[in-house]
């Protein structure tokens, strides 16, 4: 059953078996199959090679392949675990797993830290925080004066950098999030729980029995 399709899928670069991915993530096998439907759509949007290129990621997020965005770039880089410039299916599923409502909170906190550690130094520095605030102001209609931005960044940094060494380390970040749990709200995508409903076309073509 489903042999032709399975062979075709195995030829896709970076394709991994749903059973393997389901075992390593909060997703069920059915959900991984549904994510494959989504992945096929995203990865063939511009270049039909079964890999998500940066432009395809931006196109999906903003309906515009040329619109660069600091956060989209950082998320793309974090999803692209192999750092080869594309997101493969396995990378896509494992990374989205962190955003699953059932994923461990510690994973969400760690992922958010890596997201905000723009220069990947192992710390979130004051300049990085300011850069992110300026980037979001640039993206939104919110207009804040330079003084206000400095005040917000100083205040936040002062609270989060409990050791006062000018940088936020993972432990300080964890403590800061525990005081402000809403900070990782964006690390959960409730939609992921309904992914099989979002891609019902998959259901009639499911190749893997959940009981396997």
């Amino acid at each position: 059953m489903g042999c032709v399709s399975s062979k075709r899928r195995k030829q896709e670069p970076g394709y991994e078996e749903p059973t393997v991915l389901a075992a390593e993530t909060p997703f069920t096998v059915s959900e991984v199959e549904a994510l494959h439907e989504l992945f096929k759509k995203l990865s063939n949007a511009i270049i039909a090679d079964g890999l998500i290129h940066r432009e395809e990621f931006q196109l999906a997020l903003f309906r515009n392949r040329n619109r660069r965005n600091l956060f989209a770039d950082r998320i793309f880089d974090l999803f692209d675990v192999k750092r080869n410039g594309v997101i493969e299916f396995g990378e896509f599923v494992r990374s989205l797993g962190v955003f699953h409502p059932n994923a461990p909170v510690a994973d969400k906190i760690a992922f958010a830290f890596r997201l905000y550690d723009l220069r990947q130094t192992g710390f979130i520095e004051r300049e990085e925080l300011k850069e992110m605030v300026l980037a979001l102001l640039h993206e939104s209609d919110l207009a804040l004066s330079e003084d206000v931005v400095e005040t917000i960044v100083d205040k936040t940094f002062g609270e989060a950098d409990t050791q006062g060494d000018g940088k936020i380390d993972p432990e300080e970040w964890k403590e800061f999030v525990s005081k402000h749990p809403s900070l990782i709200k964006n690390m959960t995508l409730p939609y992921l729980k309904d992914i099989t409903l979002a891609f019902p076309s998959f259901v009639v073509r499911s190749e893997v029995d959940e009981s396997d």
Binding site: F71, F99, I152, T156, E159
Partner: peptide, 25 residues
Amino acid sequence: KPVSMNAFELISRSQSFSLDNLFEK
């Protein structure tokens, strides 16, 4: 009020930081 928010709160609430669009059909 943005000024009373902490910077990470502003960032995490930003619309530009959202993967929701990935799932739009």
